[in-house]
């Protein structure tokens, strides 16, 4: 970033940099939780936390990409409910299970592409487009499920959500794979890198021969895909499809992205940081549960912790910006 700029050497440079301080805070919080809360560092508990985080982290991949383009995806809860509902209804109708799963994921992708079309071609604001499509998904879920929860998955399927291999739950492995795929796409591929330009500098994209509209539609399609995967995973964990099962995850997803440093103003954020944000939220909830605190107090503390972390992030960002401006002014003087 600042490699080619000649500047006065600040001896505290490394120690006051944003990534270092963030790591410091995370380590401090983890040590504190480990000391104050019995059983927190127990392996099975950590695996549980990751399992609970997976449902937040996987849709967060798509939401991160949407937020980078100054958009947002509020249809995650709808797809998390609708995709598995399609699967189980089709399965009860006698269709082979593998095909049902394929169709379920396809519905998620189609829902996402619909979002993308509304936003890119028709020009509807992402907030409205995704909120409405999410509501429609929820309605469809109620309709095809007769308003209730539906159960009856094949035995092997529920093992995916609840079982483990070598002590590591399958859910965690799936989360790892999804996050890795998302991170590689966003960070290393040509299309992924251009996503950061969307909403800021579209001409750059056009100059390279890509279409910003197609890219935007693809982003929401990817979001739909990951939401569907999360929905199928959640239903596997619960061994049932409950129409409102996705509701709480929607806001947690967005909170995870913001916690991970994705800005709602667009242009920044990474998949890995959002996944860490998701793990952070799941870990905080887990810590509060283990402490046996009264549930009313838990929400209070959770909100306070999230605000503190976000505030620290924002303040550090501002400091960095001021430092950068300071260097630029000095450069202009010489």
């Amino acid at each position: 970033m600042q490699k080619n700029v000649t500047r006065r050497k600040n001896p505290f440079r490394k120690v006051s940099g944003r990534p270092f301080v963030r790591t410091l805070v995370i380590i401090a919080v983890i040590l504190m939780m480990a000391a104050l809360i019995p059983n927190f560092l127990k392996f099975s508990n950590l695996m549980n936390v990751l399992r609970q985080a997976s449902i937040i982290a996987i849709p967060a991949i798509g939401v991160t990409m949407a937020m980078i383009t100054k958009g947002i995806d509020l249809s995650t809860s709808g797809v998390i409910a609708f995709a598995p509902m399609c699967v189980i209804v089709m399965y009860h109708a006698g269709i082979p299970f593998a095909l049902c799963v394929l169709c379920g994921i396809l519905t998620g992708v189609l829902a996402g592409l619909l979002n993308g079309l509304l936003i890119a071609r028709v020009g509807v604001l992402p907030f409205i487009a995704t909120y409405v499509s999410g509501t429609i998904m929820l309605g469809l879920t109620m309709v095809i499920g007769n308003g209730g929860s539906v159960t009856g998955f094949p035995k092997g399927y529920t093992q995916i959500g609840n079982g483990s291999v070598l002590g590591i739950p399958w859910s965690n492995i799936i989360m790892l794979l999804c996050v890795a795929a998302g991170a590689l796409f966003l960070g290393k591929t040509k299309y992924g890198n251009r996503i950061y330009a969307l909403g800021n500098n579209e001409s750059v994209i056009r100059m390279e021969g890509l279409s910003p509209e197609k890219l935007l539609i693809a982003i929401y399609g990817i979001g739909g895909f990951f939401s569907a995967v999360a929905g199928l995973l959640l239903s596997s964990q619960l061994s049932t499809v409950h129409p409102t099962q996705g509701n709480s995850y929607q806001l947690d997803c967005i909170a995870a992205c913001i916690l991970g440093g994705t800005s709602m103003l667009g242009g920044s954020g990474t998949v890995i940081n959002s996944a860490l944000g998701a793990i952070g939220i799941a870990a905080m909830r887990n810590a509060l549960n283990l402490l046996g605190l009264h549930p009313y107090v838990q929400n209070l503390l959770l909100g306070t912790l999230i605000i503190l972390i976000v505030a620290v992030n924002v303040l550090l960002k501002q400091r960095e910006k001021r430092q950068q401006e300071g260097f630029n002014i000095r450069r202009a003087d010489t």
Partner: peptide, 12 residues
Amino acid sequence: EDVAQQVSQIED
């Protein structure tokens, strides 16, 4: 309506 939260609370 938070069915998943009840399950994770019991786990914890």
